[in-house]
Design a protein around this nucleic acid. Structure first.
Length: 572
RNA sequence: CGGGGUGUAGCUCAGCUUGGUAGAGCGCUUGCUUCGGGAGCAAGAGGUCGCAGGUUCGAAUCCUGUCACCCCGACCA
């Protein structure tokens, strides 16, 4: 591709509304343009990146035996009503009405559509297992679209749905998909981790997520070097402390803490570490009352774990200030287990505290030297907190480490949640109707583009992993207007590289060298060639590797060979 | 949805407090000079100041409404 024939504009300044680096660089490099909140146009160079990602995903899905289909983006409400999700999915669902006043939505996901397809097309166990996939535009009306392509409303997703006669078959396909995903992210050249996940809203038994590792990731993932444990912090179990609870050593004392509410303030005022404080959270209970959840002051509540408690109302909702006052006799910030008249569940670590500090259930007072069993009843215990770095791995291999990740893939064993609701059945070998067992497998294709940038950039711009770069190599021609021989040599080299099977971006614009260098760095093609009068005199081009900055001169006639040795992701 | 903020040239922003003929830098066009890491000089093009209403002799500026966008919050206890 010739840059002289492309209206490509880059931005020297960072657009004001772009927060994260991938959003900034995608805009600055002219790869995407925003149309409206969370909705973007892919520009010519950006689209090449998206297409490359799609292609790798497609190849690996095909290799794993999945069948590509393309389902409608617009879906009738009736199907969503069948599964009950028309009401449950909420405002995330973009609803549309046609001229006949019929309701539709723009698909945020396709379980309903595929299950409808399956119940029409699949009659016999002999047709199973089958795994359909598509690469398609989805729309989710996010509360707050942000971070550019990372949390867009309209986005490109690869979603796959498999159908099985039994759990064993599902597990086989699930394993094949896990394998294919590993292959995909490896081929894309990304640093990633596979982690156990909570299956959340979509439901089902087992699920794993694939995270691209990056500081700016929205998810925290925990893993252990000493064993095979890796999980989203949401889904990582925290082991109870090994050491038994120390015996009480201090008397309980009441201390005045006027206006002090947060754990930090309490710790500062009373000179105690957060790990010696008890934080008592009040949430709405399933029976309409309140439940207290006790955590150590330095720990955070894990909402997924809290939601698993039968006493807790769904979804987990923090109690209002009025209800807290009514239940504890004090405003928020002063709750504690001593004399508390509502049920309490303590996290294992909180239950192992002795001589701790907590709220006194009285405005302006806290208690110190508090002990379970002596001052407050022995609590019911559960795993309620997020794991933290240094916690013991559940698999016994040593301490956990925590990293940030961007979720780019998620695979689920769905079971019969949708097939049952939509009566998707086949006949088994005994001629009996059997409800289909399903799996589903998603990859955020457009999000991968953003995640790759989050993980691979420097102060000059993007550094594409080779397999997803818009071009294999960029060839900068310096001052083409001033030198016929340079232009001629560049044209010849461009053609030759092209013939060698390389995708080349030729910067043949009548622009200053500095502009070409700066824009090439911004765009981030991994291999760069510079052809100018200086080098041409000696019959060489100058090669530079974007990521390492390594440079060397290469004889013109050896350039194609030289590049082919260094580029491993040529299209087959 | 709650709270906060911002809408002025393609982009980044000043001007608004204290009303009086719309500005800068970058980008764009033309010319000359330059030409190996986002050039210099000169001349240009480009804006219903988000939109609607109001106050006023006069509104980018003050008031009301509205729309859009951005940020924070959904663990404060």
């Amino acid at each position: 591709m010739r840059l002289s024939q492309l209206p490509w504009t880059t931005l020297k300044e960072t657009p004001a509304d772009a927060e994260v680096i991938s959003h900034q660089l995608l805009l600055r490099a002219g790869l995407i343009r925003r149309l409206t909140g969370g909705i973007f146009t892919w520009m010519p160079l950006g689209l090449r990146v998206l297409r490359r990602v799609e292609q790798i995903v497609r190849e690996e899905m095909d290799r794993a035996g999945a069948l590509e289909v393309l389902m409608p983006a617009v879906q009738p409400a009736e199907l969503w009503q069948e599964t009950g999700r028309w009401d449950r999915y909420g405002d995330l669902l973009l609803r549309i009405r046609d001229r006949h006043e019929r309701d539709y939505c723009f698909g945020p996901t396709h379980e309903e559509i595929i299950t409808d397809l399956a119940r029409r097309e699949l009659r016999s166990y002999r047709q199973l297992p089958v795994n359909y996939y598509q690469i398609q535009t989805k729309f989710r009306d996010e509360i707050r679209p942000r971070f550019g392509l990372m949390r867009a409303r309209e986005f490109v997703m690869k979603d796959a749905y498999s159908f099985h006669i039994d759990q064993g078959s599902l597990e086989q396909t699930y394993a094949a998909m896990a394998n294919a995903y590993t292959q995909i992210f490896t081929r894309l050249g990304l640093k990633f981790r596979t982690v156990e996940a909570d299956s959340g809203e979509i439901g089902g038994a087992r699920s794993q997520e694939f995270h691209v590792l990056a500081e700016s990731g929205e998810d925290a993932i925990a893993w252990c070097d000493g064993d095979d444990f890796a999980a989203n912090v949401e889904a990582a179990p925290a082991l109870p402390p090994r050491a038994p609870r120390p015996a009480p050593a201090e008397p309980m004392r009441r201390v005045t803490t006027p206006g002090i509410r947060s754990i930090e303030e309490v710790c500062a005022a009373l000179a105690v570490p957060p790990g010696r404080c008890l934080k008592t959270l009040l949430v709405d209970a399933a029976d309409g009352g309140l439940v207290a959840l006790a955590l150590r002051g330095d720990h955070e509540l894990n909402l997924v774990k809290a939601a698993r408690l039968p006493q807790v109302a769904q979804p987990v909702t923090l109690a209002s200030a009025e209800r807290i006052l009514a239940a504890t006799g004090a405003p928020p910030g002063f709750a504690g287990p001593v004399g508390l008249r509502i049920p309490l569940v303590a996290d294992h670590a909180a239950a192992a505290l002795a001589d701790f500090t907590c709220g006194a259930n009285e405005d302006g007072y806290h208690l110190s030297g508090v002990n379970w069993g002596r001052d407050a009843p022995e609590p019911a215990t559960a795993d309620l907190r997020n794991v933290v770095a240094g916690d013991e791995s559940p698999h016994g291999g040593g301490p956990l480490a925590i990293a940030r990740g961007i979720e780019v893939g998620h695979i689920f064993q769905l079971g019969d949640k949708y097939s049952q609701a939509m009566k998707a059945t086949v006949l088994d070998e005994d001629g009996k109707e059997r409800t289909l067992i399903m799996g589903c497998y998603g990859i955020g294709v457009s999000r991968i583009v953003a995640a790759a940038i989050e993980q691979n950039h420097d102060e000059h711009g993007i550094i594409w992993p080779e397999p997803m770069s818009p071009f294999h190599v960029t060839l900068l021609v310096l001052n083409p207007k001033n030198s016929e021989p340079v232009t001629a040599a560049a044209e010849a080299l461009y053609l030759e590289l092209h013939r060698a099977g390389l995708e080349v971006l030729l910067d043949d614009r009548d622009a200053r060298p500095g502009v070409k260098f700066a824009e090439a760095d911004l765009l981030g093609v991994p291999h760069r060639l510079v052809l100018g009068e200086r080098g041409l005199k000696d019959g060489v081009v100058e090669y530079r590797h974007r990521a390492s900055g390594a440079e060397q001169k290469v004889a013109l006639h050896e350039t194609a060979t030289f590049l082919r040795e260094r580029i491993h992701s040529r299209p087959s």
